Simulated scan of single mutants.
Amino acid sequence: MTFSVAGICPDTGMVGCAITSSSICVASRCAFVRSGTGVALTQNITNPDLGPLALDLLQEGQSPQQVLAALAEADSDVQWRQLGVLNSTGEGTTFSGEQALGIFSTAQGQNCIAMGNLLENTGVPQAMIDSFENSSGHLAERLLSALEAGLAAGGELGPVHSAGLLVAAQPQWPVVDLRVDWHIEPIHELRMVWQNYEPQMQAYITRAKDPSNAESFGVPGDE
Rank of each mutant, 00 (worst) to 15 (best):
M1H: 12
F3M: 02
S4E: 12
G7D: 02
T12A: 05
G13Q: 04
M14N: 14
V15M: 03
V15A: 05
S28H: 12
R34D: 02
G36K: 00
V39D: 00
N47F: 03
P48F: 10
L55P: 00
Q59M: 04
Q62Y: 07
S63Y: 05
A69E: 14
A74L: 00
R81C: 08
Q82W: 02
G84A: 11
L86S: 01
S88L: 07
T89L: 15
G90L: 02
E91W: 04
G92E: 03
G92S: 09
G92N: 07
S96M: 07
E98W: 12
Q99L: 12
Q110V: 13
A114I: 04
E120L: 09
P125I: 13
Q126W: 08
S131K: 09
F132A: 07
E133M: 12
G137C: 11
A140R: 05
R142G: 09
A146S: 15
A146Q: 08
G150R: 09
A153E: 06
A153N: 09
G154A: 07
L165C: 03
V167R: 03
W173E: 06
P174G: 06
V180K: 02
D181N: 14
W182K: 10
E185Y: 07
L190A: 05
L190Q: 04
Y197K: 02
P199H: 11
T206I: 15
R207M: 08
A208K: 15
S212I: 15
A214S: 13
E215Y: 05
G218H: 03
G221R: 01
E223H: 00
